[in-house]
Computed example of a mutant assay.
Amino acid sequence: MTAPVRPLPDLGTLTWDQSAGRACIWCKKLLTTGAVSVGIIRGQLGAHVLDTEVWAGPCCAVAQPQ
C-alpha cells in the first residue's frame, strides 16, 4: 500500500499527534498498524529546523497498481 498523492497540510495546522507521527495526517485517526510515510513537511523558525515526517493510516492509504 502507498499513500495517495495529496498535498500535505501546513505544519502549523497539525495536531500534536499528527506532528509526532501518532495520527493520520489527513483524518487524524490514531495510527496502530499499516501506517505509510507520506513525506516530510519542511519548516523552520529562525535557526530551528521544524521538519516533520508525516504518516497516513490504512484509512487514507490506497493500494497502487504496479
Rank of each mutant, 00 (worst) to 15 (best):
T52E: 04
A23F: 10
T15P: 11
A23K: 13
L14T: 13
I25H: 04
P4Y: 00
S37N: 12
G46W: 06
V36Y: 04
E53K: 09
T15K: 14
W55D: 02
L31S: 03
D51C: 09
G43I: 12
A3W: 09
R42G: 05
A23Y: 11
L14G: 07
K28Q: 14
V38T: 15
L31Q: 05
R22G: 05
P7F: 00
V54L: 12
W16V: 15
W16H: 15
S19V: 10
I40A: 13
T52N: 02
A20M: 14
G57R: 08
C60W: 05
I40N: 09
V49S: 14
G12D: 11
R42I: 05
P4M: 07
G12H: 04
I40Q: 08
W26L: 12
A61L: 08
L14P: 03
A3L: 13
D10E: 06
Q18G: 02
T33G: 00
C24F: 06
A35L: 01
Q44E: 15
P4T: 05
I40W: 07
G21R: 06
D17W: 03
A63F: 10
P7R: 07
P65G: 10
P65C: 02
A20G: 02
A56D: 03
Q64E: 07
A35S: 14
G46A: 06
Q64Y: 08
G12Q: 05
G21N: 04
V62D: 05
D17N: 09
I25V: 15
K29R: 12
I40D: 06
G12F: 01
H48D: 12
E53M: 03
P58Y: 00
